Simulated assay, not measured.
Amino acid sequence: MTAEADGTRIEPARMADVHQVLADHPRYWGERDLRSLHLLALVREFGPTCLVARGEDGIRGYLFGFVTPTGTGYVHLVAVRDDARGTGLGRRLYGAFAEAARHQGAQRLKAVTSVGNAGSIAFHRSLGFSVEIVADHDGPGRPMAVFHRDPPFGDPGT
C-alpha cells in the first residue's frame, strides 16, 4: 500500500499493532472502554481486512473488519487517534478496507454502532451509508444503528 503526502501508509495490521493500540486505547476512544472488542482473532484470521494507518509517530488509526461468507464486508472497529482526527484518515481507512473486502468477494459493506453515537452516525452517512435503527439488535431493549452500503466500491466517500 502507498503512503500519503503526510507519510501515513495503510497496511495490514500485525499482532503487535493490536497490543500497541490497546496500550494507547484512550488516544483512540477517550473515556469509552472498548478494549474487549479488540479481538486478536480478527487480525490473526482476517489479516488482509484488518488495517492500520502508520506514520512516523506510530499508529494514527486502524480498522478491523472481515468478509462474511455471504459477501458482506463487515467493519468491526474503526478508530483514529486524537491528534489525527479531521484529516480524512477514517475515510482513507474505509477506502482501503472496501478495496480489500472487494478482492475477497464482498458485495456490500456493513457496520454497527450505538444509537447514541452521533459522530459515528454522521461519519457513516457522509461515506454514503444508509442507516437503520434496529430495535433489540444487541438484545432486549438494546437498539443499534446498522449501516449498509452497496457498490460501487473504491472510495466509500463518493
Rank of each mutant, 00 (worst) to 15 (best):
R92G: 03
E4N: 04
I133P: 00
E99G: 07
R27C: 09
R27K: 15
V75K: 02
A145G: 07
Q107E: 13
Q107M: 08
A145H: 05
K110E: 13
L39H: 13
G119E: 12
I59R: 03
L89I: 06
T8F: 00
G105P: 12
A79P: 08
G90W: 03
T8W: 01
G157S: 12
Q104G: 11
V18A: 13
V43N: 04
F147M: 09
A3Q: 08
F64E: 10
A53E: 04
V112A: 03
A53Y: 06
A79G: 14
A122L: 06
T68D: 02
F64I: 03
S130H: 07
A122W: 01
V43M: 07
G141V: 05
R35L: 02
D150G: 13
T2L: 08
A13E: 04
S36T: 08
D24K: 11
M144F: 05
Y74K: 07
R54C: 07
H103G: 15
D138C: 01
A53P: 05
H38S: 10
G58P: 05
R81M: 02
A53S: 08
R14G: 14
V131K: 00
R85T: 14
T2I: 07
A41F: 04
A106L: 07
R9C: 11
T158G: 10
V131E: 15
F64R: 01
P143V: 09
F123P: 11
T2V: 09
L37M: 08
V75E: 09
G47T: 14
G157C: 01
R60S: 12
H25C: 09
H19W: 07
T87D: 05
F147D: 02
P69T: 04
I121T: 02
A41W: 03
T113R: 04
P26I: 11
V67S: 08
Y74A: 06
G88T: 09
A3E: 13
G157F: 14
A84W: 11
L34F: 11
M15W: 01
A41L: 04
L127C: 14
V67K: 06
S114H: 09
R14F: 00
S114I: 01
I121H: 01
L42H: 12
L22G: 05
R108A: 15
A100D: 01
L40F: 12
L42T: 09
V112S: 03
R92T: 04
L39T: 01
P48H: 06
V52T: 11
E132S: 12
L39S: 12
G71D: 10
Q107S: 11
M15H: 12
A111F: 02
A106Y: 04
F153R: 03
V146E: 10
P26R: 12
H19L: 14
A98Y: 02
P143I: 03
P48I: 05
V43S: 07
P140I: 05
A84F: 06
R60G: 13
V43R: 03
P152F: 03
P48A: 11
T72R: 10
T70Y: 02
D155P: 13
E56G: 15
R9W: 02
F153G: 11
P156Y: 00
T70C: 06
D138N: 08
I133C: 05
G141D: 08
H148Q: 13
P143F: 03
G86S: 11
R102M: 02
G73H: 08
A98H: 01
T68R: 14
L93P: 09
